[in-house]
Design a protein around this nucleic acid. Structure first.
Length: 780
DNA sequence: GAGCACTGC
């Protein structure tokens, strides 16, 4: 092995990964079980870790926890989830349950049976599989518990099958009144689970079993079981605050504690109080006619907390089975986790048998850096060594590149996946036997200020214990695995148990507006964890400034209209303002692009100058928003005459992200639909005039306005901060008397500086408009 | 003249 320094920027001087000491012998001999992860990482520890059951991890089981201990085979809900992962990616079900199924199906096809017989055979097979699931032994216990209690907590390990089976048990028990809803934090999960359960019921998707997610639903009058995102259920609550249509609501993945899950849980508690009142034993008032049953499903640790929140609801424990994963910690802490990951990867590559490696890193930058390093070293491997295939994986990576992680690993090759948190929950990758965990992640935090609407930060932080366990578990999906943690066992012990729930760290403006529409309030609602007082104040102030609530904190008619749009409240206010300003069509296009999860102008350092030049032709003197509108208009024009290929070429030539435009197109269609339902004409355009658009934008962004100061920086009108324009903005170097902007982010470089450094911000996507200053003065 | 984890309506 050559002993060159890794190309990674901060490689330890001169010391190459210890693979140099290991002649690249044939890969076949399996290593000793208690591996020697010793290396250049400074002497290795082990950290034998037997797969801990949640009980062991959570402490002694409480008395009221009814154990339904069940071993589960590999058949699980995540297989289905992976299968439907993102558009255009074909079946990637886990080899375990999925393979058998596929083989059987092919066999039937070869036999020439007709479609109906095939379908029947398939249904029979699925029923056999269901019956063999160990969770099936707990079926009666589960049905009884739900019948006897308003709320039941189910603590189920990964792979227990709870998400697919429990709804069916309740359905098949025949006691179901009304619809059964089952919420998921992610859209892909809701759609793929519905498809799987539908299949198990032997019915076409959208009949007995259906789903509802943004942009897509498959439902009918027959539908009894409905998988939906938690955001979707919150939206339904705005029209049906008591969820009268539903007899059972199951909240899945509650341990993730997303803002929407917490909102759903809090709302369910309120609904239970109303709908199930009078059910209590003893003095009977009139018995509730339409009682609601709630099931909360969690994968970790927090079961007791959910139980307490719902007045000591009983906890059922469903055991899943994962293969054992041996966990190793480093003996000393690592200063450079990218370099440590590089060394560890090659340690595995040289010492361990075939099997893919999954490396968890905080972000794109680290992923790209490590990818380069691994590639560089791979070229130096001897000809007879196992090859290396590097696959990056993060959300903003184009779909086509993401799907590479699912392609079967070629012969005589080891796949190495470099992933962000996306591989922790959203995407399950088959074939992974080794996990390298840097122990880092990026976390967004909303910092509230006394004035202004606060700003977001995105910082690299240590992960939590539950994240670490989740990451390790990714190595044991299909067989025994190994997890190498690039931090010490002490560091693991020092980690927080789980992340702070989202309700404690994000902006609550949108949540507050939704709650107001269901007749609730942030101050009065009973949350699992209460939000910070400052965050509530900030949300109230923002809604008041937008005219969504009045001085008595009552929802206004304007606020109610705002809430009917699937947009941030600020953006909804802009849209409604554009009705008065007669530029709805133009503003909807801009808002769709701003709401898209992908950036329209991605930054790739390699081609930055070319990109800037190519985009110059769209530049609008007013700023970034109108520049974006120019791009969208050009793309629309092209779409009217040209096909898919031409559009793709055009986007490539102009360095704009087609994914952003496509997603914006979906959002725009949805927004137009809401306009039609509320009798607003979305086709009105102001043509080339920019005034109406600027005026509308200012209506929603008045908290995000700033004046030019003599030194060229800007001072917030409704906040204490001095800000500057991000260099990627089209307004850079073109001072204007006042700007509005739609995002304010703290520079990570400034975070290290003392004194007044925290007042230096990055502001992106602004626009210059004298109208902004006048409006803001009046409103302030 | 700088950097962007993930998700939802």
């Amino acid at each position: 092995m050559p002993s060159l320094s890794p190309p990674h920027k901060s490689a330890a001087s001169g010391s190459a990964p210890s693979m140099s000491s290991k002649p690249s012998a044939p890969q076949t001999p399996p290593p000793p079980r208690k591996a020697k992860f010793r290396p250049a990482l400074g002497g290795m520890v082990h950290g034998a870790f037997a797969h801990k059951s949640p009980d062991a991890a959570a402490g002694p089981a409480s008395k009221k926890r009814a154990a339904v201990y069940m071993d589960s085979e590999d058949e699980d809900e995540d297989g289905g989830r992976a299968a439907a992962f993102t558009n255009g990616i074909a079946n990637h079900s886990t080899p375990s349950g999925g393979k058998r199924k596929k083989m059987r199906k092919n066999g039937a096809a070869n036999g020439g049976g007709n479609a109906q017989a095939q379908a029947a055979a398939k249904t029979r097979l699925l029923q056999e599989q269901r019956a063999q699931l160990p969770i099936a032994q707990g079926r009666d216990a589960i049905v009884r518990a739900v019948a006897a209690n308003d709320v039941t907590i189910v603590l189920g390990e990964t792979g227990s099958g709870k998400t697919t089976q429990i709804p069916q048990y309740l359905l098949e028990a025949g006691t179901l009144a009304g619809l059964l809803a089952i919420t998921q934090p992610r859209r892909v999960a809701a759609t793929s689970l519905a498809a799987r359960v539908s299949q198990e019921q032997g019915r076409p998707l959208g009949t007995l079993v259906g789903y509802a997610v943004r942009f897509d639903e498959k439902l009918s009058d027959e539908t009894r079981v409905k998988y939906l995102t938690d955001g979707m259920l919150m939206r339904e609550m705005m029209g049906d605050p008591m969820l009268e249509r539903y007899g059972v609501v199951i909240v899945d993945e509650a341990h993730e504690r997303t803002l929407r899950t917490d909102l759903v849980l809090a709302s369910l508690k309120r609904i239970l109080k109303e709908r199930n009142a009078g059910q209590a034993p003893g003095k009977g008032k009139e018995r509730a006619r339409n009682p609601l049953k709630v099931v909360v499903m969690s994968a970790t640790l927090d079961a007791e907390k959910f139980s307490r929140f719902f007045d000591d609801a009983p906890v059922l424990y469903v055991k899943g089975r994962q293969h054992p994963v041996s966990v190793y910690h480093t003996a000393t802490s690592q200063t450079d986790y990218v370099d440590a990951a590089l060394r560890t990867f090659y340690q595995i590559h040289v010492d361990y048998p075939v099997g893919d490696v999954l490396i968890f890193l905080p972000g794109q930058e680290d992923i790209e850096s490590l990818e380069l390093s691994i590639r560089t070293y791979a070229k130096q491997l001897p000809a007879n060594a196992l090859g290396v295939l590097v696959c990056p994986l993060y959300a903003s990576l184009p779909n086509a590149k993401q799907s590479r992680v699912f392609a079967p690993t070629p012969a005589h090759t080891r796949k190495c996946i470099l992933a962000t948190n996306i591989a922790e929950t959203s995407i399950t990758i088959p074939g992974v036997k080794y996990v390298i965990d840097t122990g880092k992640q990026k976390e967004k935090r909303h910092l509230t200020r006394m004035t202004g609407s606060g700003f977001d930060t995105l910082l690299t932080t240590d992960i939590t214990k539950s994240s670490a366990m989740q990451r390790a578990g990714r190595a044991g999906r299909e067989g025994p695995g190994n997890c190498f943690r690039l931090y010490t066992e002490d560091a693991f012990d020092a980690m927080a148990l789980s992340s702070e729930p989202e309700v404690r760290r994000s902006s609550l403006t949108s949540a507050l507006l939704q709650l107001k529409c269901t007749g609730q309030d942030l101050e009065s609602i009973d949350f699992m964890d209460n939000p910070e007082v400052e965050a509530v104040g900030s949300a109230l102030r923002t809604l008041w400034l937008l005219d969504a609530i009045d001085v008595k904190r009552q929802l206004t008619a304007f606020g109610r209209s705002m809430a009917s749009f699937p947009l941030e409240p600020q953006y909804a206010a802009i849209l409604l303002a554009s009705v008065d300003n007669k530029c709805v069509a133009d503003v909807i296009s801009i808002l769709s692009l701003l709401s898209s999860s992908s950036p329209l102008f991605p930054d790739s350092s390699a081609q930055r100058d070319d990109a800037a030049e190519a985009r110059l032709k769209f530049r609008h003197p007013s700023g970034d928003h109108l520049t974006m509108l120019n791009v969208f208009r050009a793309y629309d024009e092209l779409s009217a005459s040209e096909g898919k290929g031409a559009r793709r070429d055009w986007c490539r030539q102009n360095y704009v992200n087609e994914r952003a435009l496509r997603e914006a197109g979906d959002i725009r269609t949805q927004l137009r639909g809401v306009c039609e339902r509320t009798q607003l004409d979305w086709a009105v355009s102001c043509g080339d005039a920019d005034g109406p658009v600027l005026k509308s934008l200012t209506r929603g962004l008045l908290q995000h306005a700033a004046f030019l100061q003599p030194d060229g920086s800007y001072k917030q009108t409704l906040g204490p901060s001095v800000i500057k324009i991000h260099p990627s903005s089209f307004l850079t170097g073109k001072p204007c008397p006042a700007i509005i902007y739609n995002e304010l982010v703290r520079l990570s470089s400034a975070a290290a500086v003392t004194s007044r450094a925290e007042c230096i911000h990055r502001c992106t996507q602004h626009i210059s408009t004298p109208a902004a200053s006048r409006l803001c003065l009046r409103h302030s």
